[in-house]
Each structure stands twice: as C-alpha cells, then as structure tokens.
Amino acid sequence: MKMNYLSLFPVDVFNQLTNRVQYQNIDWEKFQELGNDLIDEINNILSKDVPSEMEIDLERIMQLIQKGSQNHDSNTAIYIHRILHDLDIEYNDYEQTKFGFSNYDGGGAEQPTVDQYIKEHKELADMK
C-alpha cells in the first residue's frame, strides 16, 4: 500500500510561485516561510519508510530551499516546482508530461541540472 506522501506538499503554491510571470518577482519571505514548512514536512516523511529514489529528490528539495533562501535565485523555486511536479505525476500514476527533474521517475534526464546547481552554489557558499 502506497503512503500518500505527496498530498502534504504545497505543489499548488509552488505552481503559483513559478508561473510565467511570478517567478521573476518571487516574494522571498513567503518562499522562506513555505520552504521552512516544506523542510519540516520532508523531515517528517524521511523519518518514515520512504523509497530511496524519493529520498534523493526530497533531499535535493531541502538543499534548493536553503540555497533559494540564501541567494534569492528564482531557479531554486523553478527546480523545486519541477521536482515536485514530476514526483506527483510519477508517484500518483498521472498521465501528464514530466519535466525530467525527479530521481523517483526512473532517473529524469534533467537531474544533472539540479545536481550541478547545488554543487556550484555549495562551492560559492564555501568561498564566502
């Protein structure tokens, strides 16, 4: 029996944050507030029996929230949205197009984009 992990995530909120116009004018205080709530929920989920493929995505989301809160780069919100979108579609077996950002979906082709972003911004943070 599947656990309904993803019903707890604010996918719609990240849809609003990353629509065609809004992603250019993100309310970073709201982003941080939502991000902190999402990190709490992810930590709660990770304390349970979660598929390892999903765990990778959830850890990436937490890292992106932290990076976005620090550097106010709209790419973080876009990547979070795309991972959540792909997780939602794959986990719930929806018939919809995916972005290819989730590990859970069998290794989305765009995962290296997120990994590279996290790596580059970790190195920048380490240099400060």
Rank of each mutant, 00 (worst) to 15 (best):
Q116T: 13
D88A: 08
E33Y: 06
A109R: 04
H81W: 15
Q96M: 14
F9Y: 06
K119I: 07
V114T: 07
P10A: 14
D27M: 04
K2F: 00
M54A: 09
Q24A: 12
N19C: 12
L58D: 04
I83S: 02
I80D: 10
D105A: 08
L46K: 03
R20G: 15
I26K: 03
E33D: 12
I65R: 00
A125M: 06
I45R: 01
H81S: 10
K30M: 13
G106M: 00
G107D: 01
S47A: 15
S74F: 11
Y5L: 06
D115K: 06
Q32A: 15
F9P: 01
D49V: 07
S69K: 13
H121K: 11
Y23W: 14
N15V: 12
K48G: 04
D105G: 10
L87R: 08
P10L: 13
W28Y: 15
Q22D: 10
V114D: 01
D12C: 02
K122L: 06
S7A: 13
I42R: 02
Q66W: 05
T18L: 10
H85N: 12
Q16S: 13
P10V: 05
N71E: 06
T113I: 15
I80A: 05
L17K: 14
Q116G: 02
L34P: 00
S69R: 09
S102N: 00
I26D: 07
Q66M: 09
G100L: 04
L17C: 13
E55M: 05
Q63F: 05
G108K: 00
E90V: 11
Y79G: 09
L46M: 08
I56N: 13
I118G: 00
L8G: 14
H81D: 06
F101Y: 15
D27C: 09
K2I: 03
G107V: 00
M3V: 08
G108V: 02
V21R: 07
D86K: 07
T76A: 05
I56Q: 14
E53T: 12
I118W: 00
L34H: 02
G106E: 03
D49S: 09
D115I: 07
D37V: 08
I80H: 11
I61L: 03
I26N: 13
D27N: 15
F101I: 08
V21M: 01
N75I: 00
N4P: 00
